[in-house]
Nucleic acid binder design. Structure first.
Lengths: 221, 221
DNA sequence: AAGTTTCTTTGACATAGATCAAATATTCAT
DNA sequence: ATGAATATTTGATCTATGTCAAAGAAACTT
């Protein structure tokens, strides 16, 4: 595993910053270890700082009154989260919980705002991170409202293809139940859609490995 | 109508900046007039700068392959749009079109990046704006995936109540068909839900005016 | 490795909301 | 104002997906 300095230097947020500034930043960050399935913060908590995944994976999600969850993001190493309250001064708009064991860096709000104010290129990086996140939300809203579940699954598979640089197969990085929540559906429905796509010869499913038999057909979804 | 200087000064994005900075910003902006229902940019266009509504209203939307649209935002005077690609260097992720006649300010990318580099407080203001928008997206995703259409409509009505500072009635600021698209449903379904809520004594509908007869009941949706 | 817990699949059924079609109502342009 | 274009409402029907229940598979735990 990377150490924190390497992690910071390679993250989108801090990338391109001079070494001495990275030192300053590392100095205000605190690392904490979390077990699997542990809460990091809850919707409505005051935002006293923001986080960055050092190792493991974290989900950001909303819960409905009757306990249904919708995952908004899944973040891995180098990705910051919980920054909205730092800049907007409002409480966290969603919950955060680990999906795996994880090391999480925490940056207290005050120190960080000072750094940004003093540092235009850090500010631009931060703007880029938030802009990118907005763009992902845009896609997610599009998927939720314009596509049916098979289309959303196809989108997700194509996203994994890109991320894993594979044309022939991808490996799900989260349990199927969590994937259902990310796609805004139930695990039963997701299971049926996997079965149907298999029947149609689009994919073949072996546990967490999905063989992509007809990428053209997937695109049409 | 406000002139451009007043507009910038009162916008969330630039508000609080010293007068001379506003001047610099105004200096790199160009105003253009648009008719109603005119395209400003298309999904996939390169982001050569960003925009701000000076007068009128603009919608940001995605189209599905079969021509169905999903509105992502509706922006009015003082609201910036299309800023994502400026920091990220990517093409526009959605389409922009006027809903009314409109005057739109355009800020070219290069000039703006220089300004931010020279003005940390400008960067912090922009971060706050993006954070607020992320928070709204969070709510929109929550509404789309965790609530049914009547619940989404109730959310929207309560949002209008707050915006219009009224407890007894609100006036829809967009046609019902557009509202349907914003709520991720069809105009037929929306119409039926208006009818049902009227039947249940929650509201009374008179054209674009909605009388709120039972705000408690609305909350429960 | 046996047992327990958690995840996934399958079946049967219920329903919110989409779609198509047609009737009204409203808005807009001349 | 008056006719044309748009927007809204209503009716009838269809379907994707949610829900509940239970079986089967996989993953931890001791």
């Amino acid at each position: 595993m990377k150490n924190n300095d390497e992690l910071l230097a390679s993250s989108l947020l801090f990338n391109g910053l001079p070494a001495e500034q990275l030192k300053e930043i590392a100095a205000i960050g605190v690392t904490k270890k979390y077990g699997k399935g542990v809460s990091i913060f809850f919707e409505g908590d005051p935002g006293i700082g923001f986080y960055m995944v050092a190792s493991g994976r974290v989900k950001i999600f909303k819960m409905s009154f009757d306990g249904k969850e919708q995952i908004l993001h899944i973040f891995g190493p180098g990705e910051p989260f919980g920054e909205v309250p730092v800049f907007h001064g409002s409480p966290f708009p969603a919950n955060a919980e680990t999906l795996t064991e994880a090391d999480i860096l925490f940056f207290p709000r005050a120190g960080f705002v000072n750094l940004i104010a003093a540092n235009p290129s850090l500010a631009l990086n931060m703007l880029a991170v938030l802009a990118l996140r907005l763009r992902r939300f845009t896609t997610q809203i599009e998927n939720l409202s314009l596509k049916e579940v098979p289309g959303r699954l196809a989108s997700y598979l194509r996203y994994l293809m890109e991320e894993q640089h594979r044309q022939d197969k991808v490996v799900l990085d989260i349990p199927k139940g969590q994937l259902a929540s990310l796609l805004g559906t139930s695990s039963e429905t997701l299971s049926r859609i996997f079965a149907k796509m298999t029947e149609e010869g689009l994919i073949r499913v072996e546990g967490k490995t999905i063989y992509l038999l007809d990428t053209e057909g997937l695109k049409e979804r």
